[in-house]
Write a protein that binds this DNA or RNA. Structure first.
Length: 207
DNA sequence: TAGTTACC
DNA sequence: CTCT
């Protein structure tokens, strides 16, 4: 039987099919305002296989010249990111156990051959807040390990409507997507997978 | 495959 | 550097 590393919560089917459809419509609206683009790796300029955009006050971006960072503007259009849909803010309140709202929602689109290498989310200044991830569309094989690359990893399947929370000891866990399973969901007409990642970037301002 | 190193 |  599968045992997840501590601090990693997998909540299968948290979003019902109707909620997935509603959320998808909102993400389509985000993508109309802030188009998906192909990010590139720092220094090498190698394109990733995933296409990205963001919503929220800040968005995670990467390019050859300036590397991984958060910024307030879409790198192609130069416009501010659209707001995070209210139902994602509500989901954050439901699962994050954190008293301040997320500032960034990274939207990752995985075509059927896309993947994401093992990595840590460590570009945020606030590491107290968890990372909350929502899956839509085709299933994927998700892999998660410990806080060093050499630690053992476990793999499990994520389906549309599943939510994963990386918090506490899991906040800096290495994780990635090894493959997408084509045609395992009918949510997206043309297949593929969307992952939404909610993050708090800055420590909350003292009042 | 096991796992590095920047830049600001 | 979320790749090789």
């Amino acid at each position: 039987m599968l045992v997840l590393p501590s601090g990693i919560r997998h909540i299968p089917g948290l979003l019902k099919p109707a909620e997935q459809e509603e959320l998808l419509a909102e993400i389509r609206a985000v993508v109309l305002e802030a188009p998906l683009y192909l990010p590139t790796m720092p220094r090498t300029g190698k394109p990733m296989s995933v296409r990205m955009t963001n919503c929220g006050a800040l968005g995670w971006v990467t390019d050859k010249e300036r590397g991984y960072r958060y910024q307030e503007m879409h790198p192609i259009t130069g416009k501010p990111w659209p707001p995070i849909p209210q139902r994602l803010l509500a989901l954050w309140d439901e699962v994050s156990d954190y008293p301040h709202p997320p500032e960034a929602c990274l939207v990752n689109f995985y075509a059927q051959d896309a993947k994401m290498g093992l990595h840590q989310d460590r570009d945020e200044k606030d590491l107290e807040a968890p990372v909350v991830s929502v899956s839509l569309g085709d299933d994927c094989l998700f892999r998660v390990g410990g806080t060093s690359r050499s630690k053992r990893t476990v793999s499990f399947r994520l389906s549309s409507g599943d939510v994963v929370v990386l918090g506490r000891q899991g906040r800096l866990a290495f994780h990635g997507v090894d493959r997408v399973y084509p045609n395992t969901s009918t949510l997206l007409r043309n297949g593929g997978r969307i992952n939404l990642t909610l993050r708090r970037v800055s420590p909350p301002r003292a009042f």
